[in-house]
Amino acid sequence: MSDAALTLAEEIVLLALDDDSGRPVGRAGMAPDRALAGALLMQLALAGRVDTDRDRLILVDARPTGDAALDAALARLAAPDAPTDARGAIPLLARDAPAARAMILDRLVARGLLRRVEDRVLWILPDRRYPKAPGRPEVAEARARLRALLLREELPEPHDALLLGLARAAGLLPLIFSEAELEAVQPWLGVVTRIESLNRSLGVAVADIRGVGLGTTRRDG
């Protein structure tokens, strides 16, 4: 098992799974796929493979990273007909999100953070779940960091500022905070989701998940 820190994509996948059942939680529809696409795009930017501003997405380095899900996204962005802005890149990468999620889930199972459970619904339909492994601190770490970040009004590292923006876009914050807590943290939430220039530039694209801007104050996170 590797002790490497979890990536943005791995953490957003973990946050989007119910602890006990291992089934997806959060927003329905395209939201989970676009949130994962946003995580992969942000991760590529943090790795120095792409750069972005409000209007452009620039391929800086097309060399593989060694992360299968990330490299599949990088290959998409390196194609001659790839979008030239972040807003176009999100739906492009979302097309491959189910395959990327499967690779990430397999990796988390291999690391011992998740268990793969194969069931059947009505004895016919296959039902695959990924309950979180008990006693592993990694499965709760992202949630604990996001809670501390907002409740204690801490300044985030770039990784956590981006993770918070994605968790908000995917509708995961009500699963991490109570309604009263969400109401109390709205002012600091608005500050944090604007801190990173990368988060600001990708915010327009990821906001399509919610249908509203990431900077607006909403009780549902």
Rank of each mutant, 00 (worst) to 15 (best):
A100F: 00
R147A: 09
R111D: 09
T7S: 15
P174L: 08
E11R: 15
V206W: 12
H159L: 14
D220W: 08
D127E: 12
V117D: 13
A99L: 09
V117P: 02
L70C: 12
R107K: 13
D220F: 07
R145S: 07
L15G: 05
R152H: 12
G165F: 01
R218H: 13
R54T: 11
R63L: 12
R147T: 06
A4I: 06
L44Y: 03
P80H: 10
V139F: 06
A82F: 04
P32R: 01
V121L: 14
L92E: 11
D106S: 12
P126A: 06
L92G: 05
P83K: 11
E138I: 01
L57I: 06
A79F: 05
D33Q: 07
Q186H: 04
A184K: 11
A28E: 12
L214G: 08
R218Q: 13
D55Y: 12
R95E: 13
V121H: 10
A4S: 14
L40H: 01
R194N: 13
D53L: 08
L113A: 10
P187A: 09
L202F: 13
E138W: 01
K132S: 05
G221T: 00
H159P: 05
A99Q: 09
R194I: 01
L17D: 03
G29C: 06
L8I: 03
T65M: 09
L151N: 02
P131E: 07
Y130L: 02
G88D: 12
L59W: 09
A82R: 05
A110R: 12
I124G: 00
D55F: 13
S178P: 06
L151V: 06
V191L: 15
A110Y: 00
G112C: 12
A39C: 02
T84S: 13
G26F: 03
D106L: 02
M30K: 08
T7F: 02
A4H: 11
A73Q: 08
G29Y: 06
L14Q: 05
A68P: 06
R219A: 14
A45S: 13
V117H: 10
A86K: 04
V212P: 01
E196L: 11
R218E: 15
E179D: 14
D3G: 14
G38V: 01
A89T: 06
D96N: 10
E183M: 09
A97H: 01
G29M: 05
L15P: 08
V192A: 11
D19S: 12
L41M: 11
D106Y: 00
P98H: 04
D61W: 06
D3S: 14
E196N: 15
I124Q: 10
D51C: 02
V60Y: 00
L108F: 04
P80G: 07
G171E: 08
A35M: 05
G48R: 03
S178T: 15
L108K: 04
P83A: 09
I209F: 01
A39K: 00
A97V: 00
A79G: 12
P137L: 09
A205V: 05
R120Q: 13
A148W: 04
S197H: 13
L162F: 07
P98V: 03
E10H: 03
